[in-house]
Design a protein around this nucleic acid. Structure first.
Length: 197
DNA sequence: CACCTAACGTAATCATTCT
DNA sequence: AGAATGATTACGTTAGGTG
């Protein structure tokens, strides 16, 4: 009971803390310091775009190796390829999948199967306890690090920046879930108590 | 300013690793 | 088997670049 309250207060304090840091960086002469929040927007050349579109038409769900191959082919990072495919799938409907003939009517490999073209995902990166400690510290400092902070962190623990970004996303989501679960339990308890009375 | 789209957010889910 | 947690997806929002 009190413990839960204490926890809530703690998280609130943390929120305020990183909000302050955000405000600080914002008010901190935006030109001189230039603490960019987002990565600068990459603009693909027509050639790059052509290759991407071509690849997309062949397979809107490239596996990691395919994305990696594309990345070196058009000289960019794999994470940019990933984002590009996400955005493209979201906007351009890509249901022209079976535009090729020969689909016949037996092709339902069941949607739950592997929509995602076998050549699977990037292999799971495992963090050492010291790396995790660094990440967690940074998280309490600021759960929404900008590109500069992420790059710095990545450099510090020797891991690609894209992995750092994913780590923060997962941690934020799970912290949120945890908080919700706590609230549900609390309300359940209140309900039970109410019925008892 | 409006439009396009890269970047980024959450939520849900898949997949791997560890206990 | 199940808990933890990294990776991927859908989908919505934010913001940078350009006509």
């Amino acid at each position: 009971m009190y413990l839960r309250k204490v926890e809530e207060v703690k998280t609130l304090e943390l929120s305020l803390r990183w909000l302050r840091t955000v405000l600080q960086t914002v008010s901190l002469s935006p030109e001189t310091v230039a603490t960019r929040c987002r990565r600068s927007q990459t603009s693909f050349t027509e050639v790059q775009l052509k290759i991407l579109v071509q690849a997309f038409s062949q397979n809107p769900y490239p596996g990691y190796t395919a994305k990696q191959r594309l990345a070196v082919e058009i000289n960019t990072e794999e994470s940019r390829i990933q984002i590009w495919f996400q955005n493209r799938r979201a906007r351009h409907g890509f249901l022209e999948r079976p535009k090729k003939n020969l689909d016949s009517s037996k092709d339902h490999a069941s949607p739950k199967e592997k929509i995602q073209d076998g050549r699977g995902r990037r292999c799971r990166t495992s963090y050492s306890s010291s790396q995790l400690q660094t990440l967690k510290n940074a998280f309490t400092e600021n759960p929404y690090p900008g590109i500069d902070s992420r790059e710095q962190l990545a450099e510090e623990i020797g891991v690609p920046e894209s992995r750092v970004q994913i780590w923060f996303q997962n941690r934020r989501s799970r912290l949120c879930i945890q908080r919700k679960r706590g609230l549900e339990e609390a309300s359940d308890q209140r309900q039970n108590q109410g019925q008892d009375l």
